[in-house]
Simulated assay, not measured.
Amino acid sequence: MSQHAAPHVTVQDFDPQRHPQLLRHLGPALGPWERETGAANARLLTIVSPGGTITGAALITARSTGAYVKIAGILALDAPTGEETIRGVLNYAYQQDLACVKWEHWTHDPSLATLAEQTGFQALPAPRYAMDASASIPLAGYVHWLHPARYLRTSHYQQSENFTCAAVAALAAHGETTSIAALDDLRTSELLLWRQATNFMACEPIGLGLAVAERWPDSSVTVSLDTDKPVIVDYYPEAERSWRGILQAESRRQAETTGLPLTTTRLEIVKIREAVSNGARVLLLVSLQQMLGYDIPHWVLCHGTAGSTENPVLVLDDSWVNSDSGETWVDVTCLPIPIQELDEMSCLEADGYRSALILTA
């Protein structure tokens, strides 16, 4: 067990077999306390009285590599101890030099909403789902930034299919995951954009750039890809790679014909942060190995900056929610990732190429 801040605040790894029973005097440990959280780096922060009794507890989790902690559940003997517990989490996050603390609410409890406001949390926009959510979801989410943050405040939209991450990232970059009112229309836009850009099943960067340029002709898109070989093909059997390469060669030909800007020098991570700081949105291709434990190519939207001088972060929106590890939409909206971590996870396949789309108004 490690000690943080004051002697009466303790933080330790969460044991789902033991801790809910240990905390039952605080109330029923239901909902998030019962979920499978082993892959979500779950920890338990407790407030302990001078007599050794636990008077408050917070279940805190985070996606691997994320520069944040999320309060998934809170139990306390009384309201003042509940506030003390929240402030204990904030202090713990400060000491870890994290970018923010998030808090998900599983009930419509006005007192919790009031407490969130009193402790400096801001409400996150409500999420949107074109399909029925596969698991129970928090009713509200909040964020407390510990350092100045600039980012796009948009409703999180969970991709409706396993393969439509690029389309959702592009729609989110243009604010359309919020502005398209009807969910049926939003899902239609998601699928049509994916179909236009896909290299089956993934979206390769040049084809995606062509689709984005056609979909939003008033905005500027530049494709950055530091290899001339077919990409996102190592994940397929050898027999299925050649025809994808032919389609990607056709995308290059179309890019040359239409004048789509394409840079072939490596886009350094500091340049991505600089572009985002100047108002650009960047669609970045990453591997999910470091964040979720499986090497699958995945498009995310980089849309903000935060963090301290010593630990700068890029703020992402990820349309994939790994509910099996206890994640919810609160984790993946305005998700802060340290730039050094993002630098590593955006080196793809054996060649270690980097691919991104820089979008400007």
Score class of each variant (00 low, 15 high):
1 M>N: 01
6 A>I: 09
9 V>T: 03
12 Q>G: 04
18 R>Q: 14
24 R>C: 14
31 G>I: 06
32 P>K: 12
34 E>W: 07
36 E>T: 14
39 A>E: 09
41 N>I: 01
46 T>A: 03
52 G>M: 04
53 T>M: 13
63 R>Q: 10
74 I>D: 07
75 L>F: 07
76 A>M: 05
77 L>Y: 06
78 D>A: 10
79 A>Y: 15
80 P>M: 05
82 G>L: 09
86 I>L: 14
89 V>N: 01
92 Y>K: 00
94 Y>E: 15
100 C>L: 08
103 W>Y: 12
105 H>K: 11
109 D>E: 15
112 L>T: 15
114 T>E: 15
120 G>S: 05
124 L>R: 03
126 A>F: 06
145 W>N: 14
147 H>M: 11
149 A>L: 08
151 Y>R: 12
170 A>C: 11
170 A>G: 04
174 H>T: 02
186 L>V: 09
188 T>W: 06
194 W>P: 03
197 A>E: 05
199 N>Y: 02
199 N>I: 13
209 G>E: 05
211 A>F: 04
219 S>N: 08
222 T>E: 08
225 L>S: 05
235 Y>E: 09
243 W>N: 10
245 G>T: 04
246 I>S: 07
256 E>S: 10
273 R>N: 01
278 N>G: 10
279 G>I: 04
280 A>V: 05
282 V>T: 01
282 V>S: 06
282 V>Q: 04
284 L>S: 01
286 V>D: 05
292 L>D: 11
295 D>M: 00
296 I>Q: 09
300 V>W: 04
304 G>E: 05
304 G>T: 07
304 G>R: 11
306 A>K: 03
307 G>S: 07
309 T>S: 12
311 N>E: 11
316 L>Y: 06
317 D>H: 13
320 W>K: 03
328 T>S: 15
330 V>Y: 07
331 D>Y: 13
345 M>T: 13
347 C>E: 15
352 G>M: 03
355 S>Y: 01
359 L>E: 06
